[in-house]
C-alpha cells in the first residue's frame, strides 16, 4: 500500500509541476518554457537568489499577476471537486454519485443567479457577494436534503440520493426560470453556470484553500472507514465503524468542498464524477490511496481543461465545464475499454 501510494504520489506531483509550468507559459503572449520555470523558481525562498533576472518586466507581470492566480485557482477547484467526488462515492457507495448528486450545485446556482439577476454583484461585500451567496444557498441545500432523508436519527443512503435528486430537480427548474426571465444578464448567468476561472484574482483562491486543507486532512484520516464502508454498512458497523457519524461527517465535508468550489468557479461538471473512477481503474479502490491522488489528479485535470479553454479558440474562451466533459468522457470510455480487455484476457 505504502509503495503504491509513494509511486503514484511522486508521479502525480511531477506531472503537476510540469503541467503548471507548461500552462503558465502558454497563452496569447507565449513565454518560453525556460524563462517560465526560472521566473517561478525565483519566487522560491533560498533558491530564488541564485537566479538572475534576464527577462522583461512584462513577462514577469503576465506570469505572476495574470496567469499564476488563475492556475492556482484551477488547481484548487479541481482538487476540491475530485476530493468531494471521491468522498461522496465512498459514503454513498454508488458509482453515479458525484459532488452535485445531493443538489448542492443547483442550490449554489440559485444563490449566485439571484444576485446576478438583481444586479447586486458588488453590493454588500464587493466581489465576494456572488461566492458568498452561492456558498450559503449550497449549505442550505444540504441541510434540506438531510432533513428530508433523516429517519429516527439515521441517514438511509437510498433516501438520501432520492432527496438529492428531488432537490436538484427543484432548484434546477428555479435556475432555468431565473435564466429565462433575465434579459440583460443572461450571458453572465450562462457563463457562470458552465464554469469559469477567468478574471479571478488571488483572493478567490483563499476562499477555497482552507476548506481544501481541512477537508483533505479529515478525509485522509477516514480512509480506512471508507474502505470498510465498501463492504457494506452492516459489515462496517460490525467491524467497529460508527457509520452514522462517518456518513454525516463525510457528507458535510464534501458538501463544504463542493460549495466552496462552485461558489468561486461556477458549475464545472464531470471532474468529481470521473476523476475518482479513473483513479480506481488505475490504482484500485483503496481510499487511503484514492484520497491523496484525487487531490493531485483533480488539480491536474482542471488545470489542463482551463488551459485548453483559453487556448483552443483564442481569443474566445470556451466555458470550462464544456471542456471538462468533452475531454473527460472519451478518456473515460477508453479506460473502460482497456479494462474490459484486461479482464477478458
Amino acid at each position: 500500500m505504502v509503495k503504491r501510494l509513494f509511486f503514484w504520489t511522486t508521479f502525480g506531483l511531477v506531472l503537476l509541476v510540469v503541467s503548471v509550468i507548461v500552462s503558465l507559459s502558454v497563452g496569447s503572449a507565449h513565454i518560453p518554457l525556460h524563462e517560465t520555470w526560472r521566473v517561478i523558481l525565483q519566487q522560491v525562498p533560498w533558491i530564488g537568489q541564485m537566479i538572475e533576472t534576464d527577462w522583461t518586466e512584462s513577462t514577469e507581470q503576465i506570469l505572476l499577476q495574470v496567469r499564476a492566480p488563475r492556475v492556482l485557482l484551477a488547481l484548487l477547484v479541481g482538487a476540491a471537486l475530485a476530493l468531494a467526488g471521491t468522498g461522496f462515492q465512498g459514503v454513498l457507495r454508488n458509482p453515479l454519485a458525484e459532488p452535485y448528486t445531493l443538489g448542492v450545485a443547483s442550490g449554489s446556482a440559485v444563490g449566485a443567479l439571484v444576485v446576478i439577476l438583481l444586479g447586486l454583484q458588488y453590493a454588500w461585500s464587493g466581489s465576494w457577494t456572488i461566492p458568498l451567496a452561492a456558498f450559503l444557498t449550497g449549505l442550505l441545500t444540504l441541510w434540506l436534503v438531510i432533513i428530508l432523508s433523516r429517519q429516527q436519527s439515521k441517514l438511509k443512503i437510498e433516501t438520501l440520493i432520492l432527496a438529492g435528486v428531488v432537490i436538484q430537480a427543484f432548484f434546477g427548474s428555479v435556475v432555468s426560470f431565473l435564466v429565462s426571465i433575465s434579459r440583460n444578464s443572461m450571458n453572465e448567468m450562462i457563463f457562470w453556470l458552465m464554469g469559469s476561472l477567468s478574471l479571478k484574482g488571488w483572493s478567490y483562491s483563499f476562499i477555497i484553500l482552507p476548506y481544501l486543507v481541512f477537508g483533505f486532512i479529515i478525509l485522509l484520516l477516514m480512509g480506512r472507514e471508507l474502505n470498510l464502508f465498501s463492504l457494506g454498512e452492516r459489515q462496517a458497523m460490525h467491524l467497529g465503524v460508527n457509520i452514522e457519524r462517518t456518513k454525516l461527517v463525510v457528507l458535510i465535508i464534501c458538501t463544504l468542498l463542493t460549495a466552496a468550489a462552485v461558489s468561486v468557479a461556477g458549475i464545472i461538471s464531470f471532474v468529481g464524477l470521473v476523476i475518482p473512477h479513473i483513479l480506481r481503474l488505475m490504482v484500485g479502490s483503496d481510499y487511503r490511496i484514492l484520497i491523496p491522488l484525487s487531490v493531485i489528479f483533480g488539480a491536474i485535470y482542471v488545470l489542463w481543461a482551463d488551459t485548453l479553454s483559453r487556448m483552443l479558440l483564442d481569443p474566445q474562451v470556451i466555458p470550462l465545464g464544456v471542456i471538462t466533459s468533452i475531454l473527460g468522457a472519451p478518456f473515460f470510455a477508453w479506460l473502460l475499454i482497456q479494462n474490459k480487455r484486461g479482464a477478458a484476457s
Binding site: 465498501s230 463492504l231 457494506g232 467497529g240
Partner: peptide
C-alpha cells in the same frame, strides 16, 4: 461504543462478502 463492541464480538453474516476488488490480504487486515 461500536468500536469497543467490535473488539469483543465478530459477526459473520449470511451474505458473506460483497464482490469488492480489494485483495484477500487487505480484507483480512480490515
Amino acid at each position: 461504543k461500536t468500536k469497543q463492541i467490535a473488539r469483543k464480538i465478530a459477526v459473520l453474516l449470511q451474505e458473506a462478502l460483497s464482490p469488492v476488488d480489494y485483495s484477500v490480504r487487505d480484507v483480512i487486515e480490515m
